[in-house]
Design a protein around this nucleic acid. Structure first.
Lengths: 331, 331
DNA sequence: ATGAAAGCGCTAACAC
DNA sequence: GTGTTAGCGCTTTCAT
């Protein structure tokens, strides 16, 4: 950052008005006579004046910047959510400060504190679980937060989701109807609130209701994790599974195929975080299709309202999903 | 943004020192006696003081923020680059302002102007082509820029890349050696400088050298575009192709498979922007493997040097790639 | 409708 | 080693 070439003061002097007036025309305040406004605009254009957003931020206490907390951008699930967020953010003229939290040098609450220090006007949170410190920091600084594609048991913050319990049960039921005996739940981080409080719970209820044996496999994060897990699944006689990460699901599927098995005849697979990947593999994966872009877009729209101190009609939005039957389950 | 609860002034008063001293301890300046430093730190912790980065930015003319210009985050190619950038950025304590430029309400130079207004200390550019206005704006504001995974004919800005011409020729040669007669180049935006000045040129030279017929297919952006293109490829008797986008390559492959063809027997495919997707499809795609994470990381590291006014040993870094033979070409 | 002036919270000479 | 004092470039009362 070097010394700014032309400031509001230069414009004021050149246009023979006060800084206040220049500020008004820059900010679209109506209390300016048309001739004055035109004169100021002419100078602004002539001098190529551009307001310094940092100075604006300090003076106005609004930075028109929002923080985005995302575990991992290379996970298409988050990338697609982010796209919805980004589009609405630009629509409302907000900039996004990106913060990834997975495998990082910083703890999540350090990341959040950094965002708060930058004086973001609001935050979209897509992490796995919000710490108490983080929640307290948001509270203390009075920074609005919206959770996108995540849940938090506190229900303190606004959120946009699908009904994970309902969708998962629907998936389990499909596997059951298709004749799968041993049905498994395969997930990444079992402690993530979305899993702990929704998926696992839904699975428990399902298993109990139908008197089945419980098979939960956790810490399956990657393609390779899925690939390597296959052997155990076979040992355990698993015939159907709901897999949260779609890359892991593909790993399992490929391992089965490499083992000479048939999908879905020998193993039925459903993935719950469907992205483009589930569609392009062969056979394509039956999946719980979430409106990821919309979840992001709605979350960001809600945040703009909160930042403008508007009321939210609904604090917790639940968007529709669709169970899409593809080639990894029998028809 | 609400009124800040505790400022540097509060800390100064409470610790019975001047603001300057508090500022010194906050910024790790050594010119503070240990006892004073301890006393100030105690107050900082007790009051939970956090510096206001916006005020720091205005006073110091450094925002410790860099702008990231990326066409589309849901393209894994960019997501993986971004991850490398992000990791190094946090390592050096920079925040990232994210700006996507594809299918957007804003033109790219508006996006860049916005970044400049936010007083970013530097910019990583991953777009397709840098406009003259944008280049001029960077020049004018003296903002360092590094291109990651992109080229710019001006060679004015630092960059990190692989040798696209060399890698592509290697790929074409592999197809030729494998006996493909009609070899095609399939790309997205033919006007992107990376294509215009590298891939297309390499292809031209290759075709001329071997006296082959030229087959360039452009505007193939998506999986579906690839899928739909297959019919034409077959009509044209294409036996081998280099496809820039790996999702498009998968689309072509799936269309061929659905048509009862065999890969690689009937059609050989190589993709040049390999991501996880090329690995998980069956058959997996022979690809030009770029060190995407490293490209991002190195680019960001270079930017930190530029922002610190250090000299760069090399302005244009060319990283190694690898042509990885998988199942979509014959062995 | 316009201007004057007081900050916003911090850094950076400069003085001591 | 520590304090004093100008700003940084802008917004926002409050007058007029």
């Amino acid at each position: 950052m070097h010394k700014q070439e032309v400031t509001i003061y230069d414009v004021a002097r050149e246009a023979k008005v006060s800084m206040a007036t220049v500020s008004r025309v820059v900010n679209g305040n109506n209390n300016v006579r048309k001739e004055t406004r035109d004169r100021v605009m002419e100078v602004i254009n002539r001098l190529h004046y551009q307001p310094n957003a940092v100075a604006q931020g300090l003076a106005s206490k609004r930075t028109t910047t929002v923080g985005l907390i995302v575990p991992d951008l290379t996970n298409l699930y988050f990338a697609e959510l982010s796209k919805g967020i980004d589009d609405i953010a630009t629509l409302y003229k907000y900039n996004i400060i990106l913060s990834s939290t997975e495998n990082k040098l910083l703890r999540e609450d350090q990341v959040i504190q950094g965002l708060l220090n930058k004086q973001v006007d609001g935050v979209i949170y897509m992490g796995d679980r919000l710490s108490d410190e983080a929640a307290a920091a948001f509270e203390r600084t009075n920074t609005p937060v919206v959770l996108a594609g995540t849940i938090d048991s506190r229900e303190q913050f606004a959120s946009v989701n699908i009904d994970y319990q309902k969708s998962d049960k629907e998936a389990f039921n499909l596997l059951l109807e298709n004749g799968c005996g041993e049905i498994a739940l395969i997930l990444a981080d079992a402690e993530a609130s979305i899993n702990k409080e929704n998926r696992i719970r839904a699975y428990q209820e399902f298993v109990e209701e139908h008197n089945l044996t419980k098979h939960i496999y956790q810490d399956i994060y990657s393609y390779q994790d899925g690939y390597d897990l296959y052997g155990k699944l076979e040992e355990d006689g698993i015939e159907g599974a709901l897999v949260t990460r779609n890359l892991s699901a593909v790993g399992i599927m490929n391992a089965a195929l490499d083992d000479g098995k048939k999908i879905p005849d020998d193993l039925e697979l459903i993935t719950s975080n469907a992205t483009a990947i589930s569609e392009v593999v062969r056979p394509s994966l039956t999946n719980i299709k979430q409106p990821l872009y919309d979840i992001g877009a709605v979350a960001m729209r809600m945040l703009t309202k909160l930042m403008a101190n508007e009321e939210l009609e609904e604090k917790h939005m639940v968007l529709p999903y669709e169970l899409v039957e593809k080639g990894s389950t029998t028809k």
